[in-house]
Structures are given as structure tokens and as C-alpha cells.
């Protein structure tokens, strides 16, 4: 009995002692900290090849949405190796990246090339890294113009431009508006860092990485590792994990030449479509 009472007394004194409450506080602290402060991640999203189809654009947008909604992802490194793509697909990615940038740090790391739409996507990030011989630029658009509409006996149309949507001159006017949108986006996002005028940007020239740095098209020379460190710095991360967010339909390898352009033009048919796409015209 006396032994039982002594144990009870011991326990009472232990449960009422300060070290016990310290231990309780620490255990609770660990449990709360693990759920409240998860280990931060930096996500790498790779966009490679021409972004031509809406399905590829949708997959990229899904990945960006996941990165925005996942609380453990504190920063995104956008690995870019793309000659651009369809104007509409490019603009969707650009606008979603701007939304993501409002919540999380976004750093672009350009590989071989980020031309035309590829560069359009890059300017939505907080900071752009290129490798010394990466190529950036080609700020502009092109359109495959419709053939002048001709009436056929077998097909009836309710208006003069039902089949084509308008005259070639009208679509050339729209092309100019598309160019202005692209140039405005670069001017807006690069701000004071940019050393080129609107006219110079509109020449749609390609620049080597070091040249791009000189003209303020990019922020620094560096690899993906530098981009990850910059993303961590912008997000205020001391210790973090790097995770790759794969895009379902990502192309593993691409090359885009004259034959692909011809195929692209044949796909467009009568309906004009605008492209932020760099290609070799020969």
C-alpha cells in the first residue's frame, strides 16, 4: 500500500512538474509544426518543344494550377526549351504564370532556346536565367493568310466572309495587333531592365544568352542549379526539397523545320491562326 502510494505520489509530482509540461509543449509543438509548417518544395516544370496543340497547353495549365494550389510548393523553376507555339496557347500560359507569380516565386531557366512564344512565357517569371549560348528573342508573330473567298455552286454561304472570316488585309491588321500585344508584354514585364526600344524588339531578332543579358532581355547567366537557388532565395527558403512536376504530354525531343512548317500551314486550312513561333523559313 505504501509502495502504491509512493508511486502515486511520484506520478503526481512528475505530472505537476515543469519538465513534464516542457515535454508536453515540445511534443505538441512537433505535431503542430509538422502540419502547420510542411517541408517546402521547389517545383521544376519543364516546357519543351513547340506548344502547338491545345491539349499540350491544357496539360501545362493543369500543372501550373497544381503548383499554385499545393501549399508545400513555395517556388517554381520553369525549365524552358521551346521555339514557341500557337498564340492562344502561349497567352494562356503567360497569363496563368502571372497569377502564379502573385503567390509564389517563379524563375525561368532557359536551355537551348526560348524563342518567340517560348520567350513570351519566360517574361512572366520573376527572374530569367540563360546559359551563355542559349538563344532568346524572336519577338513577333506570323499568320497563314486565307485565300480570297470564291463562291461555289455546291456550297452556300450566308455572308461574303463566312468561309474565311475576312480579307487578307484585315488579318494582316490583326497580325499587327498580335505583334503589339507581344511587344507590350515584354515591355511591361521587363520594365526598366530592358535596354531595347519597341522598334528594336519588333525586329524579331534572336540573341545569344550573353547578348540577351546586355539588352536586358534576361537577368543573369546561369544553369538550372542557379535558378533553383534564386527561386529559394526569392521564396525565403533555407532548406527545401526539389521536386519535378511532369507534364503529361511533354515532348521528349523536338526539331522544327521547313517541312514541319509546311505541314502546319496545311493544317490551318482556310482559317487563319496566329503563331508566336520561331522557324527557319527556308
Amino acid at each position: 500500500m505504501s509502495r502504491l502510494e509512493s508511486i502515486k505520489r511520484l506520478m503526481r509530482s512528475w505530472f505537476s512538474s515543469i519538465p513534464f509540461f516542457v515535454l508536453i509543449g515540445l511534443v505538441l509543438g512537433v505535431l503542430i509544426a509538422i502540419s502547420a509548417i510542411p517541408r517546402p518544395n521547389i517545383a521544376i516544370i519543364t516546357i519543351s518543344g513547340p506548344v502547338l496543340g491545345q491539349s499540350y497547353a491544357d496539360d501545362i495549365l493543369d500543372t501550373l494550377r497544381y503548383a499554385r494550389e499545393n501549399s508545400s510548393i513555395k517556388a517554381v523553376v520553369l525549365r524552358l526549351n521551346s521555339p514557341g507555339g500557337g498564340a492562344s496557347a502561349t497567352e494562356q500560359i503567360y497569363l496563368d504564370l502571372l497569377r502564379l507569380r502573385q503567390e509564389k516565386a517563379v524563375v525561368a531557366s532557359i536551355g537551348t532556346v526560348a524563342a518567340s512564344g517560348g520567350y513570351y512565357i519566360a517574361v512572366a517569371s520573376n527572374y530569367i536565367y540563360v546559359e551563355p549560348t542559349s538563344q532568346v528573342g524572336s519577338i513577333g508573330a506570323w499568320v497563314s493568310l486565307p485565300q480570297p473567298e470564291k463562291l461555289e455552286e455546291d456550297v452556300g454561304t450566308s455572308g461574303p466572309f463566312k468561309a474565311t472570316g475576312g480579307s487578307r488585309r484585315k488579318f494582316m491588321g490583326y497580325l499587327e495587333m498580335v505583334r503589339q500585344e507581344f511587344v507590350e508584354a515584354v515591355m511591361l514585364q521587363r520594365g526598366d531592365r530592358l535596354k531595347l526600344s519597341k522598334e528594336e524588339l519588333s525586329r524579331a531578332e534572336m540573341y545569344l544568352g550573353v547578348e540577351g543579358l546586355k539588352y536586358g532581355l534576361i537577368d543573369d547567366i546561369g544553369t538550372q542549379t542557379a535558378a533553383i537557388e534564386k527561386a529559394a532565395s526569392l521564396a525565403g527558403l533555407r532548406n527545401y526539397r526539389v521536386v519535378e512536376l511532369p507534364i503529361r504530354s511533354r515532348l521528349l525531343y523536338w526539331s522544327f523545320g521547313a517541312s514541319d512548317l509546311a505541314a502546319l500551314k496545311s493544317q490551318t486550312g482556310l482559317i487563319p491562326e496566329y503563331y508566336y513561333l520561331y522557324f527557319e523559313s527556308r
Binding site: 509540461f21 515540445l26 505538441l28 509543438g29 527558403l237 533555407r238 527545401y240
Partner: peptide, 16 residues
């Protein structure tokens, strides 16, 4: 205080 120490410690470990 114990909770705060742990939470802050974890916070300072991951974030600057």
C-alpha cells in the same frame, strides 16, 4: 512556450 519553440525552430530551419 514549448510549442512555440518547436514551431519557430522548424520555421527557422526551413525559412529565412
Amino acid at each position: 512556450a514549448g510549442i512555440v519553440v518547436i514551431v519557430l525552430g522548424r520555421g527557422f530551419f526551413f525559412y529565412s
